[in-house]
Design a protein around this nucleic acid. Structure first.
Lengths: 94, 94
DNA sequence: GTGTTATTTCGTTAATTGGCGAAATAACGA
DNA sequence: TCGTTATTTCGCCAATTAACGAAATAACAC
């Protein structure tokens, strides 16, 4: 889970996720959306993959990335656990 | 929102939030739960405060920290927006 | 095989981060 | 006022991070 929070801490990586939310995209397509070197984006893909938030599949000479929604569910659960969502009220206000 | 993701990216800070989920605590009480210098924890408090996830109130000579749940709601919404939660299905699987 | 395109890996660098101890600040009680 | 306690701020340092360009890899077409 640490890897997921880590992956989400960078704005560029969150934007990559936002792009993939709309449709699967190749590394090159994603790279065109940023003013960054391909190698830089590749590094971000690696981190996102390692966190489990995206998966890749080679299609000929291109590599297509896509969101892995199941990883998100775990993430959501962790965030909710972090706060008191789904717990009894705390009764501390005033 | 960037500050929130940034704040959540560190394990120590997430643990601080987890502690505060149970009850409000002073800086010293929180610090006792970690093998870190007080000054280090104070830095974490500062980041968490800046992100809006916690608030502080001085009580005599101690400073009491508490969770700010409303900030979490924004965070949750951002995470859900990041993924396709609450959107129509994507129709891409197989 | 050679060449082309798409992508990643490698090595470097500058900026950020998390840690520390020491000094500063704040509030209290004597 | 002078201590004492609680906490933060201030350098400082080591480790991590995000960026780059150049070189390496992979798949294809010829």
């Amino acid at each position: 889970m640490n890897e997921v929070f880590q992956a989400l801490s960078d704005p560029t990586r969150r934007e990559i996720l936002r792009l993939l939310r709309q449709r699967d995209m190749s590394a090159g397509e994603i790279a065109e959306c940023f003013p960054l070197a391909n190698s830089t984006l590749s590094g971000h893909f690696k981190i996102l993959k390692h966190s489990g938030l995206i998966v890749s599949e080679r299609s000929g000479t291109t590599i297509v990335y896509s969101l892995k929604v199941s990883a998100f569910e775990g993430m959501l659960a962790a965030v909710m656990e972090l706060f008191e969502v789904d717990k009894e009220p705390k009764e501390s206000k005033k």
